[in-house]
Design a protein around this nucleic acid. Structure first.
Lengths: 221, 221
DNA sequence: ACCCAGAATGAATGAATGTTCATTCTTCAT
DNA sequence: ATGAAGAATGAACATTCATTCATTCTGGGT
């Protein structure tokens, strides 16, 4: 994210330097996606223009269409990027075996979901901006639901293992996984819309409470 | 859409009649707000135009600015309308004394929140379309949080009464109310974005499960 | 030193959209 | 019947935006 100007390219600190830089396609794409995320967070999806994005990226207007063909496509790819980062992070924690204890693994998941990385206003804004349009745009639904389903399955599997290990009665893994996912989404929403009413600290506490009530042996209050 | 050029203009009663109707201001305002809701649900907030809304309402383009001054204002009023309907409905149930038993009252609340009226795709779409922009638009945040806070207080009070009545230990009313609200929001979101994965029936079941685990004597499985 | 593939630019273009307002029409009190 | 108040209309206007493309520039290969 930090725009380190590639080592010691020039002696001048690049103040207003308009020297044209040629960079590989992949790098420019990421640069534009990052700028799009910042713009959506600051101005809202519906107010974002191509000029805004390219200026934010420090590039010219033409370049967005060069690398993404259209605004629509740029927005789709941005959503895909955010979705993969979020769901990918969850899946890594859930299926990685670097944390042996199941309770600890669940804790790590919660930390990821409500920790610094994900609950930055920027990322949350983007997330819900797209949800807001998803009702009318099947494309967005598809992008999200593809990765979403995989994460949901992993979560259900983790819950099932915990249920088995703890010998919990009257608890359905699928039902609980659905509830937990919804709870996390709802907390993200509250953090975004009414940050005054809910601190991140309390959000974590609320989520832990949910897990504690379901798996008292694994998650302590 | 079918532009029937009224072959028999005068003889038919009013099929495709373009007779100008004059109605009181309040009625037209509601008519435009309803049309706005339908448009947002169908096309997404960012794609809605004034022409779209006024055509949907069966009126001319100029009338929106006559009654709402600007598109921005029309959108604000639409949000206010939806927010008041949702939060008002909840508050009526929670503070009304027509349901004596607290468990039954909670049940009624759940039915309202996940029942026909609220979870219509139309209303949900509008709801989240605004949430999506809320991060960048303080005005929207304010409109929602005003009514939201009141509903949250009522819910907390209801939970507190139930906790007292049931003698539940280790349950904090505020914490639980926050969690329940977040859960409901999250379920709405899931119903909107991945309706294939979650039926309304299962959403209700998930929410009941949450309440059952907290208040086993009041809410049965 | 030279060249050229292709990365980058930004003025120009055309389409779409919010808003205005001169005009038309409806209603109702008189 | 008549007139006035104001509700409703929609063509016109100014603006904004996505997209294009002729041109410029860069860096690596020879």
């Amino acid at each position: 994210m930090t725009d380190a100007p590639s080592a010691v390219t020039e002696l001048l600190p690049d103040t207003g330097s308009k020297r044209r830089q040629i960079r590989p396609k992949a790098e420019r794409r990421q640069q534009l996606i990052d700028a799009t995320i910042r713009c959506i967070a600051q101005h809202g999806l519906s107010a974002v223009t191509m000029q805004m994005v390219t200026r934010e990226a420090g590039l010219s207007v033409g370049i967005a269409n060069l690398h993404f063909q259209s605004k629509d496509n740029l927005f789709r790819e941005t959503l895909r990027c955010v979705a993969e980062e979020y769901h990918g992070g969850q899946i890594d924690i859930m299926e990685g075996n670097d944390i042996a204890d199941l309770g600890d693994r669940l804790d790590a998941l919660l930390d990821f979901q409500l920790g610094r990385g994900v609950t930055q206003r920027q990322k949350m804004s983007v997330w819900f901006a797209y949800y807001g349009e998803a009702g009318a745009r099947p494309v967005y639904q598809k992008i999200v639901s593809t990765t979403d389903r995989l994460a949901a399955q992993k979560l259900e599997a983790l819950f099932a293992k915990i249920i088995e290990q703890g010998g919990y009665e009257d608890v359905d893994a699928r039902e609980l996984a659905t509830g937990y996912s919804a709870l996390i989404d709802g907390l993200h929403l509250a953090l975004l819309v009414t940050p005054r009413e809910l601190s991140k600290r309390r959000a974590r506490s609320v989520a832990r409470d949910f897990l504690h009530r379901a798996f008292p042996q694994h998650i302590r209050r």
